[in-house]
């Protein structure tokens, strides 16, 4: 067995980097349900630098949304953050009282969700909706806030921002509503924007255009992005670094192009092989066997054990730590080198 673990934290070392914005350590968010304790987030470590675009990819139930909600401290009962720490701009978020947290949300950390129509007030004009954030957090007057809102909608390639500001949500298309949510989230110039499957409900052409505009906008404000998605394409377009999540744990973390070129975890390999891609025309799909484990299952070793094509007894007895295999490339597998060569040949 290869022994090349250095540390279990992909941020390397406990000393905060100068440009570090967010550091999550051993985060555990559990849901106490009738069927037992669902460990939706089961020991997650990661960090995010200022202005960085980080992707969090996983299938439904992998814990990516709960991770995002945990950072916002928006996990609802019966869910609870039961362990770990979240440091944002040097502050311990889990130690903050509710009021300080509320002040942070919308001004320093913002979030956008998958279903834009459900996150807009149906009886509020778009202009009031967007500018309210700015008025509340920055004390900007209504008129000035409207001007700023129009300016941001322009960057988002909205043809006639003034008309949109006067409209109600039901008068807008899904893509337009999502642009409005993005504008609302970013108008205060937050340091971190969390996008939870923000483009999943949109058409590919609209998705591509929104992701590009989001990129421009976050550059203007220097905002970092944590983007959760199940779509490889989205990660590829929008993120420089990516983490793969499975069963509430991060199983691989590296630069985005490295992930597609040289995946180092059997789950990532399986995921890539089961998505039809226009770059790999003619190749057969090789779907993974089996289903992900239930979040209530008590698993000591690797959560992917039941479906893994290269498993060995040790994987069932011990949790493989997230270890740096190559510089900047982390994998939670005991046999990372075998992942690619053995499975896809």
């Amino acid at each position: 067995m290869q022994q090349h673990f250095r540390t279990i934290d992909p941020g390397a070392g406990k000393v905060p980097q100068p440009d570090e914005l967010l550091r999550v350590e051993d985060l555990r968010t559990h849901f106490h349900t009738r069927h037992g304790i669902a460990k939706s987030v089961d020991g997650v470590d990661f960090h995010l630098s200022k202005g960085e675009h980080l992707g969090l990819i996983g299938e439904s139930g992998s814990g990516k949304s709960v991770t995002a909600l945990s950072v916002m401290r928006l996990v609802r009962e019966p869910g609870r953050i039961v362990g770990g720490s979240i440091h944002f701009e040097g502050q311990d978020l889990l130690g903050l009282d509710a009021q300080s947290m509320r002040r942070l949300r919308g001004s320093r950390i913002s979030m956008i969700f998958q279903d834009p129509l459900n996150h807009l007030d149906p009886v509020m004009k778009i202009g009031d909706w967007i500018s309210e954030t700015l008025t509340l957090h920055k004390g900007v007057g209504r008129k000035a806030a409207y001007v700023e809102a129009a300016r941001i909608l322009k960057v988002l390639k909205v043809a006639s921002p003034e008309d949109v500001l006067r409209a109600y949500p039901f008068q807008l298309s899904g893509g337009m509503c999502q642009r409005v949510l993005i504008a609302t989230a970013i108008i205060t110039g937050p340091a971190l924007l969390i996008a939870d499957e923000a483009t999943s409900a949109l058409d590919v052409t609209v998705q591509a255009s929104i992701l590009r505009n989001l990129d421009e906008l976050t550059d203007i404000f220097g905002t970092a992005v944590l983007l959760t998605t199940h779509n490889m394409l989205v990660v590829r377009q929008a993120c420089t670094r990516v983490m793969v999540m499975y069963g509430g744990r991060i199983v691989e973390s590296c630069d985005t192009d490295v992930l597609f070129r040289n995946p180092m975890h059997p789950y990532t390999v399986g995921l890539l092989d089961s998505v039809p891609a226009l770059e790999r025309i003619g190749e057969p799909l090789r779907p993974m066997a089996g289903e992900p484990p239930l979040p209530t299952e008590d698993i000591v070793g690797c959560k992917f054990y039941g479906r893994c094509p290269i498993r060995r007894p040790v994987c069932q007895e011990m949790r493989p730590p997230l270890a740096e295999v190559e510089s900047g490339h982390w994998s939670a597998c005991f046999f990372p080198e075998e992942s690619r060569s053995k499975i896809s040949s």
Binding site: A208, L233, Q237
Partner: peptide, 20 residues
């Protein structure tokens, strides 16, 4: 096709459509 095979944030995006 362009929207479905985007390479990365810096890729040429002349064919990305705006509007709905």
């Amino acid at each position: 096709l362009a929207a479905a095979i985007l390479e990365g944030p810096s890729s040429s995006d002349a064919t990305i459509l705006d509007g709905d």
